[in-house]
């Protein structure tokens, strides 16, 4: 029992990370059909914002020393701020561009952010003790797991409930859902496009910052590439969930986390190194059988 619960918790906590990432990507895709490759770099930036720029090996903690009730809002604000800034400075001018152009522009933006961090902080990973209280192990249902894992899962569930309420109960949420479904139509019906898009970027940035906090306290490291692998998985989750479908993105995120964890458990040692090959193979299979994703969003179907 304890063994199985342990695997369940492992899968859930990894899935939570992917689900949060996938939500951040799906939100923006929903309102402007942009696959935002800069998302991973927003994650990295949010962590580095807690440090003072220096190329020395030892990190100079700056905002990282704040008490948690200030630290968390600060980080979320940084992520949201950077994300909104990228919308205002860059993506606003790409509203009418085709998806490939937007994608490459977002990639170029991510490139700029990454090398900006590299210049300020050098490539050496920096250590940072974020929310150290979360490293204690706790016993639950016969499984002994780090407190952080539990909090990750709870936070994700909390975010999901909060976001659902926000999207369903508030006018802003309604506008956002309308825009995600049919942007042109929504605009004609009086949805203020700029506000909705900025809102989506702010939410997406805050989600990136939430991932940054979890990754930062889990790994204890600020690393320029830290957002990259989560972002790739999140991106895949968004697609197999059905581009633009928020629920699909979340489900697919959890599914990917579960597949990766289960593979690690059941594969024999020699095959474990090939884990990712199996995971990506599964992705191809899903796409072959459900090219529109698990939950296709209405209005994103391709012609023919």
């Amino acid at each position: 029992m304890g063994g199985i619960m342990q695997v369940v918790f492992d899968a859930l906590s990894l899935g939570s990370l992917y689900a949060l990432g996938a939500l951040g990507i799906a939100l923006i895709f929903g309102v402007m059909r942009l696959v935002n490759f800069a998302h991973g770099d927003v994650i990295a930036f949010s962590v580095f914002a807690l440090l003072w720029p220096s190329v020395d090996a030892v990190a100079i903690i700056f905002a990282g020393n704040l008490p948690w009730f200030l630290l968390i809002p600060f980080t979320l604000a940084v992520g949201a701020g950077l994300s909104v800034l990228s919308e205002v400075v860059v993506f606003r001018r790409f509203r009418r561009a085709n998806p490939a152009t937007m994608m490459i522009a977002s990639f170029a933006l991510g490139f700029v952010i990454r090398y900006f961090l590299l210049m300020l902080f050098s490539s050496r990973p920096k250590s940072i003790s974020l929310l150290p209280g979360l490293s204690q192990p706790v016993e639950i249902l016969g499984a002994r797991i780090p407190l952080l894992q539990l909090i990750t899962i709870l936070v994700t569930i909390g975010v999901l409930i909060g976001l659902t309420a926000f999207l369903r109960r508030t006018r802003f949420g309604l506008e956002m859902r309308a825009a995600a479904e049919n942007f042109t139509m929504a605009r004609m019906l009086g949805v203020r496009a700029n506000r909705v898009i900025m809102g989506a970027f702010a939410l997406s940035g805050a989600l990136a910052a939430a991932i940054a906090l979890i990754l930062g306290s889990q790994t204890g490291t600020a690393n320029i590439m830290m957002g990259a692998s989560v972002m790739l998985m999140a991106f895949i989750a968004t697609v197999i969930g059905g581009m633009g479908s928020l629920a699909g993105a979340v489900i697919a995120g959890f599914a990917l986390g579960a597949i990766a964890t289960v593979m690690q458990v059941i594969l024999p040692p020699d095959a474990r190194a090939f884990r990712d090959a199996f995971v990506y193979g599964a992705v191809i299979l899903v796409l072959i059988f459900r090219p529109q994703g698990l939950l296709a969003a209405r209005g994103t179907k391709e012609r023919v």
Binding site: V7, I145, Q149, Q218, T219, Q264
Partner: peptide
């Protein structure tokens, strides 16, 4: 890897 929980288990 974002998490090595499975390996730790």
């Amino acid at each position: 890897d974002a998490s090595i929980a499975a390996q730790i288990t």
